[in-house]
Design a protein around this nucleic acid. Structure first.
Length: 336
DNA sequence: GCTGCATGATGAG
DNA sequence: TCATCCTGCAGCA
């Protein structure tokens, strides 16, 4: 269940593994056979993320043009709730892990036992071959040294540059993008603030609206509202502009950190108490690469998945409520 | 082994 | 507001 930080992280991983390379593209599951054929044998010339949307540019193998060329075809992927990428490689690339829905990290070493003995020997000889696809793999990208398998995406299309631009035009600013997507950090922040304040829809709902701010999901929503001390049910137009601006700035920091480490951590050190003083909370899988274990998973959030447990700051029980089909978590005292 | 849930979004009514 | 799509896994028997 990726929020925007995961998708940006994924874009970097794909670029590192496949950027500049010619790929074999297929659809082992078959449901993307037509699209895969449009990309097979082409070269990756760009990988981008905007919110939860991933775009990967494929140019003809022989072409020297960049991602703006007319003959570029864009792969658009949205992971939705269940989508995930699984990577494996011959060990020559650093980035070998799974990103997306909660699933076990699959590295080169862990997939090796699944390889027939002959393939394992071939890998040792430098003649690497990808492991057989696991599960319903919609899309498989194979380079010389690595493979990426995509399962369960909500969207997986091949689009033109114009169609890509149309998708982006419907998205709000993205706190992880360097300029936020609106030309400058300031313009992006202002676009978010103005949009929220134009509507009486609750600020909790608007934070999940990808047209208002791109990349925020249920965890960042709950945590950002807590850190701002803001009631999720307050109408957007009633929230002071500076409060919304501060939420944007906070999300810039939180989400970029998440993109760097793979884990969402929103608690400040002084609010992380060992020995389960605040209760354990439900376990939430995070797609780290194993290096981001500094903060225990059950100390990472203030309110997300902590309904009924005492608030880390004031001790009042964390509240939950279904809002527009998604679970909302907040502290009724700190966020009054 | 089975069941229900999940960090999402869409289209119909 | 609801049904639907899609998949893996935690939690349970």
């Amino acid at each position: 269940m990726p929020e925007g930080h995961t998708v940006h992280r994924l874009a970097r991983a794909l670029d590192g593994l496949f950027g500049g390379r010619t790929l074999a593209v297929s659809s082992p599951q078959g449901r993307f056979a037509g699209g895969a054929a449009l990309l097979d044998g082409r070269r990756v010339v760009a990988v981008e993320a905007w919110g939860k949307q991933l775009f990967c540019a494929f140019a003809p193998a022989g072409a020297k043009g960049g991602d703006g060329a007319d003959d570029v075809r864009w792969l658009r992927v949205h992971l939705g709730l269940y989508g995930a990428w699984t990577f494996a490689g011959d060990g020559s690339a650093d980035v070998v892990h799974a990103i997306g829905a909660p699933r076990r990290r699959i590295g080169e070493r862990e997939t090796t036992p699944d390889l027939p003995a002959g393939d394992a020997l071939a890998a040792e000889a430098g003649d690497w071959a990808p492991p057989a696809p696991r599960g319903a793999v919609r899309l498989r990208l194979v380079g010389a040294h690595a493979v990426a398998d995509l399962t369960g995406p909500t969207a997986c299309d091949v689009v033109t540059g114009r169609e890509k631009a149309a998708v982006e035009a419907r998205l709000g600013p993205d706190p992880i993008r360097a300029d936020g997507g609106r030309g400058s950090p300031e313009a992006s922040r202002a676009a978010f603030v103005d949009r929220v304040r134009r509507s009486r829809v609750t600020v909790g709902q608007q934070l999940m609206d990808q047209a208002a701010i791109a990349g925020v999901g249920n965890i960042y929503r709950a945590e950002a509202l807590f850190r701002a001390g803001l009631d999720p049910l307050r109408p957007g137009r009633d929230v002071p502009g500076p409060v919304l601006a501060a939420i944007w700035d906070d999300l810039v920091v939180l989400m970029r950190d998440g993109a760097a480490t793979g884990a969402i951590v929103t608690t400040r050190p002084e609010h992380r108490v060992p020995d389960g003083v605040h209760g354990a909370g439900r376990r939430t899988r995070q797609n780290t690469d194993g290096t981001a274990g500094a903060v225990p998973a059950d100390e990472a959030f203030y309110v997300y998945h902590r309904d009924g447990l005492p608030c880390r700051v004031c001790g009042a029980p964390v509240l939950t409520k279904e809002l527009a089909g998604r679970n909302l978590f907040w502290c009724g005292v700190c966020q009054a």
